[in-house]
Write a protein that binds this DNA or RNA. Structure first.
Lengths: 141, 141
DNA sequence: ATAAATTGAATTGCAAACAATTTAAATAAA
DNA sequence: TTTATTTAAATTGTTTGCAATTCAATTTAT
């Protein structure tokens, strides 16, 4: 019979929320939500990406990203620029404040990092490897 | 510098959504959402729990649970009964349809179970053990 | 060239998640 | 006892997440 402690998804559901709660305080301090932070991470790595490129990296669709990006634009962290060659595409560009925010975001993952620093290295690398395998192989089709 | 592939939370964020997407189809078939399914799992294990007891097991507060439980009640799967001894408490009781749904929910986690069945047993038990450790030790304070 | 299909975002609508506040009830303290 | 505190849910407001649909622009096929 189905049972919470046997359910393979539940630990991930809880873990995901625990992390986003741990990030909340430092993110509040710089005016970002957790998914907004992920979008900024993607843009700090490479500025000027299309909505769909960001979506591919975060596994989010335009239904989630469009309003989120509009909020980041309202916060003056990004600009949404419609491409000239292909008017369907919207390119996301960091503003100066958006770019500058990167250094202030350095401490966001601190609590999570510290937590794993207290683990034995073999447990950390095991977890990393297994999560990588999980994400690479699991498809919800 | 902060970077998506270094972020310790991101794999859990994605995994959580992948699982809930994998559950969507079988859950749709029985008229439940993923968090509603979790609540039903908790109730199938033990009927007649308080909102706060359910919240403790799922790590959810009344702001999430109250409207969710009202929807389950509207679907005629549960009843919300205010306790007589202590009028602050609301006890959640399964209806007959709610109770009966348990057998139909047997296949919900099938895809996830099959996925892990194709893994080597040592990887599965490793992942389980590490997730257990993570959830027991990580606190987002 | 024109119609059909595809693509990229945006929109709509619903259900979480969660902080913050409120309400009511029960308990403790003065 | 009356006041203050604590507790359990509910409410309010904002942001996600996602299915489904729409809209416009671009490609492909006829």
């Amino acid at each position: 019979m189905a049972n919470l402690s046997d359910d393979p998804s539940f630990p991930f559901y809880v873990a995901s929320r625990l992390f986003s709660q741990a990030y909340r305080e430092p993110l509040d301090a710089i005016g970002l939500t957790y998914p907004q932070y992920l979008v900024m991470l993607v843009l700090w790595e490479k500025d000027g990406q299309m909505v769909s490129q960001i979506g591919q990296k975060l596994q989010l669709d335009s239904g989630t990203l469009t309003p989120l990006l509009k909020r980041l634009e309202a916060s003056n962290l990004i600009k949404r620029v419609r491409s000239e060659e292909d008017e369907r595409k919207v390119v996301i560009e960091l503003t100066y404040p958006g770019s500058s925010l990167q250094s202030k975001a350095a401490k966001v993952a601190e609590k999570a990092d510290e937590f794993f620093n207290n683990w034995e290295e073999k447990d950390v690398s095991q977890l990393k490897a297994i999560m990588k395998k999980l994400l690479a192989e699991f498809n919800p089709s």
